[in-house]
Design a protein around this nucleic acid. Structure first.
Length: 420
RNA sequence: GGUGGGGUACCCAAGCGGCCAACGGGAGCAGACUGUAAAUCUGCCGGCUAACGCCUUCGAAGGUUCGAAUCCUUCCCCCACCA
């Protein structure tokens, strides 16, 4: 058998873009240590990093040892790949802080126990201490400028200009591979297909410096059927950090996946079995209105990123906000999560407030006139029940003792918290 | 600097002494339909009021008039053409 289980798994998931010759042979021959690198350009990873993360997860599940490399050193330089202009340098403190928190995030995906325990590395450990002369003699001597300018990441910048700093980035990343092989025996690098040039430079450098064999495997870059950039919403990037993108918003991002994309995302970003995914895919075709595949996708990924408890709550909040959920009897934890997602206001129990006042207080409408209009048109809801404009605060029974969920129209919510 | 045209509600755009809170379109909101899609249909769309009605608004400030977005004066700002 020449095809390894790892590559086979990637292949049916549509996760295999290209790989160096012999990668399959090496993977089939025994336990391999492989790594993926992550840029500390922000204090959190976003959903765009999920594919390489899942690449490492599959690697570990198929009997190999995953290394997650945070680019604390390379982050000081900036990867020119896919960039049309020179990047601004980040401060050392910032890069280090980012590397730290990204490392924490990565550690949630991989198993750090057992014989093939995952390992976290930071290339600042070997790059920051390296001298310029040492670098040029030991590393730079092995690759020609001709080789480097032939790479797409450099070539595409030849017109607009590229600084020597970013030009050298490839060498640093290539050297990472060398360093990881020397200290940890890592012989495989995985990453997005935009990294192919840098990765093969590493393979080449290992061959020249150490005369050893190493391989590279790339994943396809994510696209959306609608042509939008993956991982972006009107609110900006979708982060893995709960403080930047709440579990509910994260859940919603996946729920809103286009029918045309959902099957691919299930393959790329969940560990669901092939049969399960295929049945979800046929469900999308036969019963698109059920949104079963989207729900499964959202549950799986949210649970993996934020934990099962948070995923359940996010699912509940989503169900309530989009009209299919019974409001009475919601758990306080769900109500609290809900309150964080919608605008709100606090009122005192004994205030003489009508429904129109509450809608104005909550910011759902601009004036009492508008509130009245909405209510008269049947668009005002209190705790899930259609309500008239004359309804008084004292007549409303708060949920869990203190929450009043207001809704205007189909999906505009606000939460009133009753104090006193 | 000269001449001509114009500034109307979120945007476009009618109105040119009372019937104007101001035609129409777009956007927005609500209802129906629907898959947390798209389209379609209906209603609403300055503020306060349960309502009669009251208040604020048509570049700004004054004025004429019983009454002004509409007429007059001054000012501010845009656009076009000519210097």
């Amino acid at each position: 058998m020449s095809e390894s289980d790892f590559l086979g798994e990637l292949a049916w998931r549509g996760m295999l873009q290209q790989h160096t010759d012999g990668a399959g042979r090496m993977l089939a021959a025994g336990t391999v240590s492989g790594y993926a690198g992550f840029d500390p350009t922000a204090p959190s990873l976003h959903v765009g990093s999920l594919v390489p993360i899942m690449g490492l997860v599959h690697l570990q599940r198929q009997g190999h040892r995953p290394y997650a490399l945070v680019g604390g050193g390379t982050g000081m330089i900036g990867d020119p790949s896919g960039k049309t202009t020179e990047r601004t340098l980040q401060s050392i403190d910032q890069v280090m802080a980012n590397a730290e928190s990204i490392g924490v995030q990565l550690s949630r995906f991989l198993d750090f126990s057992g014989p093939r325990a995952a390992v976290l590395r930071n290339n600042a450990d070997w790059l920051l201490g390296m001298g310029a002369v040492e670098f040029m003699r030991d590393v730079g001597k092995h690759l020609t400028v001709n080789y480097m300018i032939a790479k797409d990441s450099v070539k595409s910048r030849m017109d607009a200009g590229i600084s020597y700093t970013e030009f050298s980035y490839m060498l640093l990343q290539a050297y990472d591979f060398v360093a990881l092989r020397r200290r940890d025996g890592v012989t495989l690098q995985v990453g997005g297909s935009d990294q192919w040039g840098n990765m093969t430079a590493g393979v080449e450098l290992i061959r020249r410096m150490d005369g050893a064999e190493a391989h590279a495997v790339t994943f396809p870059l994510l696209t959306t059927a609608a042509g939008a950039k993956f991982g972006k919403t009107e609110a900006g990037a979708v982060w893995l950090d709960a403080d930047r993108t709440s579990p509910y918003q994260f859940f919603q991002f996946w729920i809103n996946t286009d029918d045309r994309d959902v099957g691919r995302y299930l393959r790329l970003m969940t560990l669901l079995d092939r049969e399960v995914i295929e049945s979800l895919e046929s469900d999308v075709i036969e019963h698109p209105e059920r949104r079963g595949a989207q729900t499964a996708l959202a549950r799986e990924i949210t649970a993996r990123v934020h934990g099962h408890e948070a995923a359940l709550i996010a699912g509940e909040v989503s169900r309530v906000l989009f009209g299919r959920g019974e409001v009475s009897g919601l758990a306080p934890a769900v109500l609290a999560a809900l309150a964080k997602e919608v605008p709100g206001a606090t009122v005192s129990r004994d205030e003489q407030l009508s429904l129109t006042d509450l809608f104005v207080r909550a910011g759902l409408v601009k004036s009492k006139g508008e509130a009245r209009r909405v209510a008269d048109q049947g668009g005002a809801y209190v705790n899930g029940e259609r309500a008239a404009s004359g309804l008084m605060l004292s007549e409303i029974v708060p949920l869990a003792g203190s929450y009043i969920l207001l809704r205007k129209g189909a999906r505009d919510y606000a939460m009133i918290q009753v104090a006193g």
